[in-house]
Simulated assay, not measured.
Amino acid sequence: MNERFANGRQFLLREGRLLERRLFATCFEGASGQGVLDALRGYANDDGGFGYALEPDKRCPASLPLDVEGALAAMATAGAADPDLIRRACDYLVGVTTDGAVPLAFPVIEGYPRAEHFSEWTYEPGLNPTAGLAGLLYKLGVDHPWLPAAAAYCWKQIDTAELPTDAHALREILVFLEHTPERDRAAAAAADVRAALDRASWFRLDPADPEYGVSPLAIAPTADSPWRALFGEDVIQGHLDRLERDQQDDGGWPITWEPPGRAARLEWRGVVTLESLRTLVSYGRLDPAR
């Protein structure tokens, strides 16, 4: 096994959550995606949503749309879907939707430790996370009444409103555009989103920029991503060089923001380490077998 890959694996086995360990086993060791679904059930609530810090920056047990997005993303990564879990999660989304959109979180998080960036702005329904949720549901082949209404909201915002000025929201739009069945419409819209990225806050085009932000590899995390073509190949390779250099002596990758505690930091490092390994393997920078 490649030494750098093996070091990342050891970090996950030593420090990662059960969910990331299950995802690693599914992505790289031939394990069934059923283990990922089993791990996700531990984050599910009776209302159909997901909580319990599935997204580690808020330690709230209550269901939040952001945690539903995390659950869907894990299923998509594992290539495994539980129809009942998804149906109940979509039913939950129906109950918290306003005019087709959901927010990231709700004020209930204020009773629990959370990162400073979780504040009132996260309570406003918007493309982040509605577009990402809709895109993941399309990817998972879901048929539920919440999806057409959410997609209509997304298209209305993309077609008639000014695009967001935050790179996180633009990345969510690109998840939606990657998986919507309206392919010609998506291709046309992607060019506008790419132009908006250059003006967006938190976008980090320069691989030498040490600050937190959304990089091209966050938008095109795999070599076959349709959004790889939005960036010059020199930019992609520069960010891959940076990603390789960022691996720490303990085998994991660092994070560039302040989480609410030590447990959250380790959980996030597990998430980021798995993402980094998957990206480097996909782009041919790491070969697990050598």
Score class of each variant (00 low, 15 high):
residue 4 R to I: 02
residue 5 F to Y: 14
residue 6 A to T: 05
residue 7 N to L: 15
residue 7 N to E: 15
residue 8 G to K: 02
residue 11 F to Q: 01
residue 18 L to D: 07
residue 22 R to A: 14
residue 23 L to M: 14
residue 25 A to N: 09
residue 27 C to P: 00
residue 33 G to H: 07
residue 34 Q to E: 14
residue 36 V to Y: 06
residue 40 L to Q: 06
residue 40 L to K: 05
residue 41 R to F: 09
residue 45 N to D: 13
residue 45 N to C: 12
residue 49 G to R: 04
residue 53 A to I: 00
residue 60 C to I: 11
residue 63 S to Q: 06
residue 63 S to C: 10
residue 66 L to Q: 05
residue 71 A to R: 08
residue 71 A to D: 09
residue 73 A to E: 15
residue 75 M to V: 06
residue 75 M to C: 13
residue 75 M to E: 11
residue 82 D to I: 03
residue 84 D to C: 05
residue 87 R to D: 13
residue 87 R to N: 09
residue 90 C to L: 01
residue 93 L to V: 03
residue 94 V to M: 14
residue 95 G to P: 02
residue 96 V to H: 07
residue 98 T to E: 15
residue 104 L to Y: 13
residue 105 A to P: 02
residue 106 F to A: 08
residue 106 F to T: 09
residue 111 G to K: 06
residue 111 G to I: 00
residue 113 P to H: 07
residue 113 P to I: 03
residue 121 W to Q: 13
residue 122 T to Q: 14
residue 126 G to I: 04
residue 127 L to D: 04
residue 127 L to Y: 00
residue 127 L to E: 02
residue 130 T to K: 02
residue 131 A to Y: 10
residue 134 A to Q: 00
residue 142 V to S: 09
residue 148 P to R: 07
residue 150 A to M: 06
residue 152 A to P: 00
residue 153 Y to F: 15
residue 161 A to M: 04
residue 161 A to Q: 13
residue 163 L to C: 09
residue 163 L to H: 05
residue 163 L to I: 04
residue 167 A to T: 07
residue 174 L to A: 12
residue 176 F to A: 01
residue 178 E to I: 01
residue 179 H to T: 01
residue 182 E to F: 10
residue 183 R to V: 14
residue 184 D to T: 04
residue 186 A to L: 12
residue 186 A to Y: 12
residue 187 A to D: 14
residue 189 A to D: 09
residue 190 A to I: 07
residue 193 V to D: 03
residue 194 R to E: 14
residue 195 A to K: 14
residue 195 A to D: 15
residue 197 L to D: 07
residue 197 L to P: 04
residue 197 L to A: 03
residue 199 R to P: 00
residue 200 A to V: 08
residue 201 S to E: 15
residue 202 W to M: 12
residue 202 W to N: 13
residue 203 F to S: 06
residue 204 R to I: 12
residue 206 D to I: 01
residue 211 E to G: 14
residue 211 E to Y: 02
residue 212 Y to K: 08
residue 213 G to C: 07
residue 214 V to K: 11
residue 216 P to V: 01
residue 218 A to W: 12
residue 218 A to M: 13
residue 218 A to D: 15
residue 226 P to M: 12
residue 228 R to V: 11
residue 232 G to F: 02
residue 232 G to Q: 07
residue 237 Q to R: 15
residue 239 H to Y: 12
residue 240 L to A: 05
residue 240 L to K: 05
residue 242 R to G: 08
residue 242 R to Y: 07
residue 244 E to W: 08
residue 245 R to Q: 15
residue 245 R to N: 09
residue 249 D to N: 01
residue 250 D to P: 05
residue 252 G to F: 11
residue 254 P to V: 12
residue 256 T to G: 10
residue 258 E to L: 15
residue 259 P to D: 02
residue 260 P to W: 05
residue 260 P to H: 10
residue 261 G to P: 08
residue 261 G to M: 13
residue 263 A to C: 04
residue 277 L to R: 04
residue 280 L to Y: 05
residue 284 G to D: 08
residue 285 R to F: 10
